[in-house]
Amino acid sequence: MLKTIITCYLLLSISFGIAQEKDTSISIINYQKEVIAKLTGKNTISKNRFLRQRASYEERFLSAEYLASELKRSGWSFELQKYRTPQSNYFLDLFFNPNKGINVVGKLLASKPTKKYLILGAHYDSERNSPGAVDNASGVALCLALAKELQQFKHRQYNIIIAFFDQEEDDEVGSNVFVEKIQNENFEVHSVHIFDLIGYDSDNDFALTLQSPAPLLEDVYLRKAKEENISIQIIGGAASDNKPFLEAKYATIHPFEELDDRTPYYHSPQDSYETVNFEFLANTTQYIGNVLSEIIENNE
């Protein structure tokens, strides 16, 4: 009799745990669907306005306003970091006006005052004539879902910044401006986690690539991946907004989709909402959430 009761209790606990995990996963999927639908023009981003791409200043401004409102909704403070920079070469400077863009920077303070920051980042602009669903509404949706989760952490060892960078597609202008700013202001940075191209997974194996992980991050990312049965490949180099951070010698990591299973619609008009694998995106979000929980709550 006692054995039966214990068995029933265990079965109920396990199924309740699984159901709860599924609920979390479903709520992440629904939220990320909403975010990506708005950023890619499947749904309106503001009154009667559908985005075709996020390349012109006006489209980027609308996106930035939306991202700021989402951060605010999740209980984060935010700043719209507007900037102007010279063009990428002197010849262009003679004939064109300076670059104009906006980084959206959300901030969540640590439980106890500290000067240390952990930075999460994703670019929100897209290539011209591309809805930019995987590149990089997926990275933005991941960060926004994490914003909700991080708010729930009971004990945060670090101040957390979520930075949505502008103009990654034009030689990482936005992230360069951001790096210059945190250097000038002497920010103490624990680590920088950049998310770009994280929504495509045609074989549904949820595998990931980690680019140029700093040793302190590589260990925890690999350990958590092993626990969650996620296959990981590690490569070097820099291919996104991790470039300026690596150059400035910050501890950085850039997780993105499996190297051999990357979106075939990169920078094309077909990079649309329909090509995003939302289960993969939600699974990756939960995985990153667990990694961050270990770093932020346990002072790993």
Partner: peptide, 12 residues
């Protein structure tokens, strides 16, 4: 030659 030009320049 749109695609080889930075978006900021293109939209100017």
């Amino acid at each position: 030659t749109g695609n080889s030009v930075p978006s900021d320049v293109y939209f100017q």
